[in-house]
Each structure stands twice: as C-alpha cells, then as structure tokens.
C-alpha cells in the first residue's frame, strides 16, 4: 500500500472538519475526490502532506508515518499543487520549476546535472519548455498551472495532490491538462489524488472516486461503480443519466437539478 489513511480526524478549534477517514491507494492510480463545498476535500489533501496536522488518526506513505517525517522528506514523496496560481514575484518559468528540486538537494548519490535533467523532463512533459525564460506572471492561468505542475513533477514525487486543477481554465485546456495528468500517472507510476468539482472530468479520467459528504467518506470505489445516478442525487441533488460511450468511456449526462431535492 503506497498511501494509507486511517481513522483521520481534523478540527479547527472546536469545529469538526473530518471524521474518521479511511482510505488506501496505490501508485499509478488516479483517485478523484468529489463532494459539495465544505465537506472537507481540501482539508483531506492538506492532511496527506502534513500541511495540516490531524487531531487523530494517521497518514502513512510506504509504511512511514507522515507526521514523523521532516518537511523535506515529505516533499520528496508528496507534491502538492494548490488552487491558487497567483504569484507575487515575477520569477522566470525555469526558476519556478527549478524550485521543485529543493528537497532533492541532499539526495544520496546525487550527480551533477541531475537537477537540470529533472527540470527538463518536467517541463517537457507539461509542454512549457518554450516558456523557460518568461516571467511567470505574464502567462495565462492555464499556462501557470502547468508550470506549477511541472514544479511538482520536478520533485520526482510518488504521490501528486491536485486541488481543483481545472478551475478557471478554458475547456480545451481542461482536457489537455487531464490528458497529461493521466498519461504521466501511468508512465511514471504516480498516485494522483485530485480534488475537483467537475463531475464529468472526474468520471472520465479517474480510476477510483471518493465521494465525501458531511466530513465523512460517503462512497468509495471504482469510478464505474460510484458514479451512479443514485449517488449523484443523494450527494449533489442533481439528476443524471450514466452510460458507456465507445469514444471515451463513462458518460455522465447532467440533466438538471433534482426536482425532489430539499429547498436550501
């Protein structure tokens, strides 16, 4: 088991945010985490890489408890791409991606040129080599996000955490991004946890889905088993129709708001 989350609980002061979360996942998988706002999705991601320290429970990666690892050790295994792509300072794209190599500075058996090679590979995989000398704040939102993903890849992680990676992107770029994530996950054997609002993209690109509701995991399992109209109605109050499409796989058709859903 690459990632094991056991009985995780987290609260801000006295407000509970996560209750008894159990989850395991393997390298090479893409796991989508979906749910309504406030169900604790982002908090869960932050507990995985110890940005937030859970009150109870444990997160284990390859048998080691994350709470006992130093930030650097965590960064070697887990990379996190946050929602925000705003930047304060106009670093070049190359400099930004190179920042991801920080945790590898004290690697054993490190050779000269390792960093440049890793950065090159990350930039090539995300298609941003042509932006190398551009200041990052001159790029569009989608391009910036690709840079952040390249930076995360430069860490050479086993686990990649993505928080709403398709937010504010043009629709074609949304597809581009997820195609790329999917390919990289399989090629490099990386476990990807994606928090997203986009039900359609999640159903298309994720191997497994975690539906969160009310601070708990409501349903978890293979995408085809979890993305069913019943669950969509229970959790999202929407009516859907699910079918198989030979061109791309699972097709979740969004019909509209469920007429029987409770009034807010």
């Amino acid at each position: 088991m690459s990632l094991e989350i056991k009985e995780l609980c987290f609260s801000y002061d006295r407000r509970d945010v996560l209750c008894k979360i159990d989850l395991t996942a393997e390298r090479g998988e893409i796991v989508g985490i979906i749910g309504q706002n406030g169900c604790g999705k982002t908090t869960l991601l932050k507990c995985v890489n110890s940005s937030l320290v859970p009150g109870m429970g444990s997160v284990t990666v390859d048998g080691c408890q994350v709470s006992e690892m130093s930030r650097r050790e965590i960064a070697k295994k887990i990379a996190f791409v946050t929602q925000t792509t705003n930047v304060t300072f106009p670093f070049s794209v190359y400099d930004t991606v190179t920042m991801g190599r920080y945790s590898r500075m004290d690697d054993e058996g490190r050779k000269e040129g390792d960093d440049v090679r890793a950065v090159f590979q990350a930039m090539k995989d995300t298609g941003i080599l042509k932006f190398a000398d551009r200041p990052i704040n001159e790029l569009s939102g989608g391009e910036r996000r690709r840079v952040m993903i390249a930076r995360a890849l430069a860490q050479e992680p086993e686990i990649l955490l993505l928080d709403e990676p398709t937010l504010h992107l043009d629709i074609n770029h949304q597809f581009d991004l997820l195609e790329m994530i999917h390919r990289l996950s399989k090629e490099k054997n990386i476990l990807v946890l994606i928090v997203t609002h986009d039900i359609v993209l999640a159903s298309r690109y994720c191997d497994r889905i975690v539906i969160m509701q009310n601070k708990k995991i409501h349903k978890i399992g293979d995408t085809i088993k979890v993305m069913i109209p019943e669950n969509m109605k229970d959790v999202f109050y929407i009516e859907t129709e699910v079918s198989e499409d030979s061109r791309f796989g699972l097709n979740v058709l969004l019909i509209g708001k469920d007429k029987d859903s409770p009034e807010d």
Partner: peptide, 21 residues
C-alpha cells in the same frame, strides 16, 4: 538564498516544496 526564493512563492507553497518554515 534558495529558501528565500521559495518563500517568495508563499509560505504554504514553500512548505509543500520542503522548506522548514
């Protein structure tokens, strides 16, 4: 110097990349 560059991206991001803030 390296840590200062990283922190310029934001403390949360720097921590994610491995900096002991």
């Amino acid at each position: 110097i390296k840590e200062l560059n990283l922190i310029a991206a934001g403390e949360e991001q720097a921590a994610n990349i491995g900096v002991n803030i």
